[in-house]
């Protein structure tokens, strides 16, 4: 068993990316906004991916970046966008003592496990993977050789797991409707006209200068249309299109109605 020395380059990489990974983890836990948390986590995962590559596991590094960072985290963001923000982002802790206890226990756990690992692996020899990969055997080939021989059964079972997960997700996300309960267009239309609001909901940015999701629609009198607020985003002050405000421009009907100030409650919300 030949001890392979760890090169200076790797040490440099570790000491740069290690703090970055830590910062990402802490940022994920500490940031109020769930979207920010996801982005912090992406940061940590990318750093870990690099660690994999450095530690002679280029295949895993690629999978980490493509599957984890690319696919899974995007799935997270998707669900975040669907669910939106709510009170769970509040920083107020509702369970008494939970935060303090969690931090104390966490520090204790980290201390114990870290000390234990450090003590146990202080003089751990680094064998390196040169024997199984390298030369004409790539990392992927080494993994595949083992995966399709010794771990074949586990691999096949994994496929069953994935199928089950896919079906399970569909079952859980699916909304069951009895046949025939789907409403026709006529019924939908009728139901809509029975409400206080027969017209369509305003889209974002109507009458506004911009049309981003963050820009709510404006009502004809210039107030913000609450229906058009996007979830998860603070409604912004909308920069309005210029509109007639003066007496001369309004003409006679407005005169008669007394709507002299076109936006009396603007920006009230």
């Amino acid at each position: 068993m030949n001890d392979v020395a760890i090169g200076t380059g790797e040490a440099v990489v570790f000491w740069i990316l290690g703090p970055i990974a830590l910062a990402g983890a802490l940022g994920m836990v500490l940031s109020r906004n769930a979207v920010h948390s996801a982005l912090w986590l992406v940061n940590t995962m990318l750093a870990l991916g690099v660690f994999y590559v450095v530690q002679e596991a280029p295949f895993l590094g690629a999978v980490q970046i493509i599957v984890y960072t690319g696919a899974i985290m995007i799935l997270f963001l998707f669900v975040l966008m669907l669910v939106g923000r709510d009170s769970s982002d509040s920083v107020v802790e509702t369970l008494r003592g939970q935060r303090v206890a969690a931090i104390v226990l966490g520090i204790g756990f980290a201390g114990l496990v870290g000390a234990g690992i450090a003590r146990a692996t202080q003089d751990l020899p680094v064998t390196g993977l040169a024997a199984v990969q390298g030369g004409d055997t790539s990392n992927i080939q080494a993994i595949a050789r083992l995966l399709f021989t010794r771990y074949l059964l586990a691999f096949e079972v994994t496929s069953a797991l994935l199928i089950t997960a896919a079906v399970g997700a569909m079952v859980l996300a699916h909304i069951e409707r009895d046949p025939g309960t789907r409403r026709t267009q006529r019924e939908l239309s009728r139901a809509r006209f029975l409400t206080d609001r027969p017209q369509t909901l305003p889209g974002p940015g109507v009458y506004a200068r911009g049309n981003s999701v963050a820009a709510p629609a404006l009502l004809p009198d210039g107030r913000l249309a609450e229906d058009s607020f996007a979830t998860g985003i603070e409604p912004q002050e909308v920069e309005q299109m210029p509109r007639p405000t003066g007496r001369a421009q309004l003409g006679t009907p407005d005169d008669a109605l007394g709507t002299l100030d076109p936006a009396p409650e603007r920006g009230q919300r």
Partner: peptide
């Protein structure tokens, strides 16, 4: 620099996740 560094880093990340 030894492999211990990676392991301790992993332990700390794990703990941060748990506390989270």
């Amino acid at each position: 620099m030894s492999l211990t560094n990676y392991l301790v880093l992993a332990a700390i990340l794990f703990t941060i996740g748990a506390v989270g």
